[in-house]
Design a protein around this nucleic acid. Structure first.
Length: 488
RNA sequence: GGUACCGUGGCCGAGUGGCUAGGCGGAGGUCUGCAAAACCUUACACGGCGGUUCGAAUCCGUCCGGUACCUCCA
C-alpha cells in the first residue's frame, strides 16, 4: 500500500498519516441518527462524509468494518419533561409503541440513505439491543471507582477521573471552566458536580422504556451506547470514530472518559468530525427548527425551496465543500450543483463517442495523481471534483476535435473518471422515472418525425414537437449528429 | 462569561508563503432555420489596519464582523 493517506485528527488538531492498528483491517464507528424524526440535510452530510471515508478506505484496499449505530433509547430531554426519554416522549404524543416510532423512522432513514447512494454500514447496532453490554460497562466503571450511585442512578465522577486522566482533551476544555458554566439539569442535586454525567438513570412512572439493572429499573446514560457497542464490534482501541462536530462535547469527550475509566486507555486513534450545514450562516438543527428534511428536498415541498432537488444533487452539493467546513444552504448553490453534476455525467457519456487519434494532447497520469493526492489529503472532495471537471474539459476538447487522445488514453480516462465519479464519490446517474425501453422507443419515433419535418423545412411542426415535449420536461438537444434528448 | 473556528470575485466553494482552483452566473465567440443545448475563450478575489519577508490571500499582532460548543442535536 503505497498511498499515504492523511486524516485530520480532532484529538491533536492536525492531519496525521493514517495507519491502521491491524492492517489490512480498519475499524470505523460513526454516530448515527436518533430515530425520532425525519432525517434532514445535516444527517445527509454526516452520512455522506463517512460514506466517502468508507468507500475510499475500501478503494485503498483496506478491509473495513464500518459500524453506525441507531440511537433508539436514552437521550434525555432537557426541558419541562424532566429526564424523559426522547423516543418515549414522541411515542406518548403520537400514542404509539416506542418501538413503532423507532421502526417507522429507521425505515425512513434507510430509504433516504439509499436514495443518496450511501453504502450500508457493515453493522448497524441499536442501543436498545445492547442494554446488557451497557450495564456491564457501567459495572466496570463502578468497579474502577469512577462512578457513584445515587438513588438508583449512576453518575460518572468527572473530577476524580480528571485527577488521573484528562477530561476535556478532545474538545479542548478545562475542568475548571466547566465548573463555572454548567447549567441546572434534571437530577442535578444527586450529582457531586454539575458536569458529572449519567451512566444509568432511574426511570420514573412516566417512562415507557426501561430495563432492569443492579441499580434500578431504568435506562442507560447518554454516551454509553457508543462506548459499549464500538468496543464490542471493533475492539479496544479501534481506528476511526466519526460524527458531527456538535457531538464533540460532551458526547465524544465522555466516550473517551468512559473507556479510560473502564479499560485504562483511549478507545480511538483518529477522531473525525464533519462540520455543520448552515442556513443564512446559522446552523441547521432540530433545536433551531430551521431544518429541511431530505424528503422535502427530494419533493421540493418546503417554503424555502424554489424547486425539488434530486438525491444526487444533494450528494454532489455536499461533496463540493470539504467536510470540515461549514456549508451554506441556498437555492442558488443547489441549482449550481445540479447543473455542474449533470455536466459531469454528460461528458462521461461522451467518452465512448471519442475518436482515437495517433497523438495525445493531455497527460492523464498527472490528473490521476491529482485525484489521488486530493483524496489522500484528508478526503478533499472539492479538489477531487475540480479534477473531474478538468477531465471533462479534456473530453469536450477532444470531442470537438480541438485536442487528441490515443485509444489507450481514452480507456484510461474512462476508467479513472468512472472510478472516482461512481466508486469513490458515489455519484450515480439518476434513473429516469419512466419505463426506459418504452420511452426510448417513443422518443426515437417522435424525433424521427421531427427530423423529417425539419428536412421539409416545416418549422411549425418541428417547433411544436419541441414545445410539446418541453411541457413534459423533456429537452430536445440538436447536435451535429442529430437530436438527443434528456429529462430536465 | 469560558473554549474553539471562520471571514476568498455576483453566488457556492478549494487553496495556505512566490506558479490557473473548480462549479454556477456574467461577457464574447463557435454551431444552428430559430431557439435551446453543447463547446471554446474571458473578466471579476482574498474583512480593516500594522508587522515579519526579496515576496503574504497564505505567517504574526490588532481591530471589526460572523459562527459553533459549553443542554438533546449530524
Amino acid at each position: 500500500m503505497e498511498t499515504q493517506l492523511y486524516i485530520y485528527n480532532t484529538l491533536v488538531r492536525k492531519k496525521q498519516l493514517f495507519k491502521p492498528i491491524a492492517p489490512p483491517h480498519v475499524g470505523m464507528y460513526v454516530c448515527g441518527p436518533t430515530v425520532y424524526g425525519d432525517a434532514h440535510l445535516g444527517h445527509a452530510r454526516a452520512a455522506i462524509t463517512f460514506d466517502i471515508v468508507f468507500r475510499y478506505l475500501i478503494h485503498l484496499g483496506y478491509k473495513v468494518r464500518y459500524v453506525r449505530n441507531i440511537t433508539d433509547v436514552g437521550h434525555l430531554e432537557n426541558d419541562a419533561d424532566e429526564g424523559e426519554d426522547k423516543i418515549a416522549k414522541k411515542a406518548r404524543i403520537e400514542e404509539l409503541e416506542p418501538m413503532e416510532v423507532v421502526k417507522f423512522y429507521t425505515d425512513r432513514y434507510h430509504a433516504n440513505m439509499d436514495e443518496l447512494n450511501v453504502l450500508h454500514p457493515s453493522i448497524e447496532p441499536t442501543a436498545s439491543g445492547h442494554i446488557i453490554e451497557q450495564i456491564e460497562l457501567v459495572k466496570e466503571i463502578l468497579k474502577n471507582e469512577y462512578g457513584y450511585e445515587a438513588d438508583g442512578s449512576v453518575y460518572f465522577d468527572v473530577e476524580k477521573y480528571n485527577r488521573k486522566f484528562e477530561y476535556g482533551k478532545l474538545s479542548g476544555r478545562k475542568i475548571e471552566d466547566l465548573l463555572q458554566n454548567t447549567r441546572e439539569l434534571a437530577g442535578q442535586e444527586e450529582k457531586k458536580n454539575g458536569f458529572d454525567f449519567a451512566l444509568w438513570k432511574k426511570a420514573d412512572s412516566r417512562h415507557i422504556m426501561h430495563w432492569p439493572s443492579p441499580w434500578s429499573e431504568g435506562f442507560p446514560g447518554w454516551h454509553l451506547e457508543c462506548s459499549a457497542m464500538a468496543a464490542k464490534y471493533l475492539g479496544d482501541p479501534f481506528d476511526i470514530h466519526g460524527g458531527g462536530m456538535d457531538l464533540l462535547f460532551p458526547h465524544h469527550e465522555s466516550e473517551i472518559a468512559q473507556s479510560n475509566a473502564a479499560h485504562g486507555h483511549d478507545p480511538v486513534k483518529f477522531w473525525m468530525h464533519n462540520n455543520m450545514i448552515t442556513v443564512n450562516g446559522q446552523k441547521m438543527g432540530k433545536s433551531l427548527n430551521n431544518f429541511i428534511t431530505l424528503d422535502e428536498f427530494f419533493t421540493g415541498n418546503h417554503e424555502s425551496l424554489v424547486q425539488a432537488y434530486s438525491p444526487m444533487t444533494i450528494r454532489f452539493f455536499i461533496l463540493q465543500a470539504h467536510y470540515r467546513s461549514t456549508l451554506d444552504f441556498s437555492n442558488e448553490a443547489l441549482q449550481a450543483a445540479e447543473k455542474g453534476l449533470s455536466k459531469l455525467f454528460e461528458t462521461y457519456k461522451l467518452i465512448d463517442l471519442l475518436k482515437p487519434a495517433h497523438t495525445s494532447s493531455f497527460d492523464i497520469d498527472a490528473i490521476k495523481n491529482s485525484l489521488e493526492n486530493a483524496m489522500n489529503d484528508d478526503f478533499n472532495t472539492p479538489v477531487t471534483i475540480a479534477q473531474l471537471f478538468e477531465l471533462s474539459r479534456m473530453i469536450n476538447l477532444a470531442n470537438d476535435g480541438k485536442a487528441s487522445l490515443k485509444q489507450p488514453e481514452i480507456d484510461q480516462l474512462k476508467q479513472i473518471f468512472g472510478l472516482y465519479l461512481f466508486d469513490v464519490l458515489g455519484l450515480i446517474p439518476e434513473k429516469n422515472n419512466s419505463n426506459d425501453q418504452l420511452v426510448n422507443y417513443l422518443m426515437d419515433t417522435i424525433l424521427e418525425l421531427r427530423k423529417q419535418a425539419k428536412e421539409n423545412k416545416d418549422w411549425a411542426t418541428s417547433d411544436r414537437i419541441r414545445d410539446e415535449l418541453a411541457k413534459l420536461n423533456i429537452q430536445v438537444k440538436d447536435t451535429k449528429e442529430g437530436a438527443r434528448w434528456s429529462f430536465n
